[in-house]
C-alpha cells in the first residue's frame, strides 16, 4: 500500500493550485468565463497535458487522504494534525479529476483516464514501489499517461484524415458551464489560501484543527 505522504501531497497541491490560479488570473482568462471555449491547437495541447498532470495529482490527493482518513495508515493517535490537510486534498482531488476528465469527456479522454488509473493502481497497489530518496518513480504513471495521450491523439488525427467524412471524437456530455460556476476563481482562491496556511502550520508542527487534540 504505497502512498505519498500528506506533507508532500500538500506541497504538490499548493504548487499546482498556484499555477491553476495564475491560469485563471493571468494566462488563460477564458478559464474564468463559462461561455468562452478554446480552439487554438497549441493551447488545447498544453491544456491536455495540464489536465493529465492535474488528473494524476488528483489521484495522488484522493489516494493519500483516503489512506490516512479511512484506512488509518498513520493510526489515529495524531489524526487532528492530519485531518485538515486530508480534507483539503480530498476537495482539490475531486475538483481536479472532475475538471480534467468528467466535465466534457470524449472517448479519447475517457480512454486516457482509464489507462492512467490502471497504471496508478499497478504502481501504488500491485507493484507497491517503495520510494527511497527517489522522487521520479512517483511520476512514472503520469509520464506514461502523457505519452499515451500523445499517441492516441496522433492515431486519432491520422484516422480522421484518412476517413474524411463522418468521424469525430464527440463529447459524451458537457457540463462545463455548471462546473465553472461551482469551482470558480473565488472557490479556488479560498482553497489556495487554506492550502498556504495549512502547509506552513504542518511544517511547524501545527494544523488548522490541531486544537481537536484538546477536545477528544
Amino acid at each position: 500500500m504505497t502512498f505519498i505522504n500528506n506533507y508532500f501531497a500538500m506541497i504538490y497541491a499548493i504548487i499546482f493550485q498556484s499555477v491553476l490560479l495564475s491560469g485563471y488570473f493571468f494566462w488563460a482568462p477564458k478559464a474564468r468565463n463559462p461561455e468562452k471555449l478554446y480552439n487554438c491547437w497549441l493551447v488545447l495541447g498544453l491544456r491536455g497535458v495540464f489536465f493529465v498532470i492535474g488528473c494524476y495529482l488528483g489521484f495522488i490527493f484522493l489516494d493519500t487522504s483516503i489512506k490516512i482518513l479511512f484506512l488509518g495508515v498513520y493510526g489515529y493517535g495524531n489524526i487532528s494534525f492530519h485531518i485538515t490537510s486530508c480534507i483539503l486534498l480530498l476537495v482539490l482531488g475531486i475538483e481536479l479529476i472532475i475538471g480534467a476528465v468528467f466535465v466534457a469527456p470524449t472517448l479519447k479522454s475517457i480512454t486516457t483516464f482509464i489507462v492512467m488509473l490502471t497504471l496508478f493502481i499497478y504502481y501504488f497497489e500491485i507493484n507497491q514501489v517503495v520510494v527511497h530518496e527517489d522522487l521520479d518513480k512517483i511520476f512514472i504513471p503520469m509520464f506514461y499517461a502523457i505519452a499515451f495521450l500523445i499517441i492516441i491523439t496522433l492515431i486519432y488525427e491520422i484516422y480522421r484524415k484518412l476517413k474524411t467524412k463522418g468521424f469525430e471524437d464527440k463529447e459524451l456530455w458537457n457540463f462545463e458551464r455548471k462546473f465553472k460556476r461551482i469551482f470558480n476563481w473565488k472557490f479556488n482562491l479560498i482553497l489556495w489560501i487554506l492550502l498556504s496556511i495549512e502547509i506552513i502550520l504542518m511544517i511547524e508542527g501545527y494544523s488548522l484543527f490541531f486544537w481537536l487534540s484538546y477536545i477528544f
Partner: peptide, 18 residues
C-alpha cells in the same frame, strides 16, 4: 519520505508527524 509503503512484515506501528 515522499512515497512510502508502511507494510513490512515486521512493522507493528507507523506514524508521521512531530
Amino acid at each position: 519520505d515522499t512515497g512510502i509503503n508502511p507494510s513490512t512484515p515486521y512493522t507493528k506501528s507507523f506514524n508521521m508527524g512531530t
